[in-house]
């Protein structure tokens, strides 16, 4: 149990100079069945993303969680704002300036509630701004951003819309680390996604994806009850 959920997991790159916070973020994300890589600086994050000026190479030897693939596409970067050297804001700018990386959603975390800082990050292209410490309820906000870019990339790079269905089916099968909290998270998430769906129905792909989510939580949950009996 717990090892099954490797296929098509979303992979998050978490950047924070504090070891405690890296532990916390890693655990929070893994509880939500994300695959996680953590690094302690913005420059290591860029290295992991394969950022060398113009060249991009998605392979890296950096610390990778045990259930890894050979190839690790990063679906989202979550970074602390206040770090020595390259700040989270600098990292955000570097990613958004790169033609190869700019489609990766970036989320900024900060322990300080400074409105001008939040505005600056959002204007520069950050998807969300979380106040630290990060909570389980924050993690729920990440998935919609990753889904949007995943399908965008699929259609652009592969031109294979069928991928969507394949991914959906695989995710139904992967019942790995599900517990009651997970169920609550999923439920909250479906509600949230339904809400965002009604706000934004001009994107057909997105609507389709989100429409499927509530159904996906149910098979997971029924599997859980079978397993625990």
């Amino acid at each position: 149990m717990g090892m099954a959920a490797t296929d098509d997991q979303f992979h998050v790159l978490a950047v924070d100079d504090s070891l405690i916070d890296r532990k916390l973020i890693e655990r929070l994300l893994k509880t939500s069945s994300f695959q996680v890589t953590t690094v302690d600086s913005g420059s290591k994050a860029l290295e992991f993303l394969g950022w060398h000026g113009n060249e991009i190479n998605m392979f890296s030897e950096a610390t990778i969680s045990p259930n890894n693939h050979q190839e690790l596409e990063v679906n989202l970067v979550i970074t602390d704002y206040c770090m020595p050297g390259m700040t989270g804001y600098d990292l955000l700018k570097k990613i958004k300036e790169s033609a190869f990386l700019r489609d990766i959603p970036v989320v900024i975390m900060s322990s300080e509630n400074v409105p001008s800082r939040i505005t600056r990050c959002l204007e520069e292209g950050a998807e969300e701004f979380f106040l630290k410490p990060m909570k389980l309820s924050d993690v729920n906000k990440l998935r919609p951003h990753m889904m949007r870019t995943r399908f965008k990339n699929d259609s652009i790079e592969n031109g294979k819309p069928e991928n969507e269905e394949k991914q959906e089916n695989e995710e139904i099968i992967t019942t790995g680390e599900v517990d009651l909290e997970m169920q609550q998270i999923q439920t909250a998430q479906s509600l949230q996604q339904q809400a965002s769906q009604s706000n934004n129905d001009n994107n057909k792909r997105k609507s389709m994806e989100e429409g499927l989510s509530p159904d996906r939580t149910r098979p997971r949950y029924s599997d859980l009850t079978v397993m625990s009996n």
Partner: peptide, 11 residues
């Protein structure tokens, strides 16, 4: 102190 505040708030 900023670091200390961060770690204490994280736990």
């Amino acid at each position: 102190v900023h670091q200390f505040k961060g770690s204490s708030s994280s736990i």
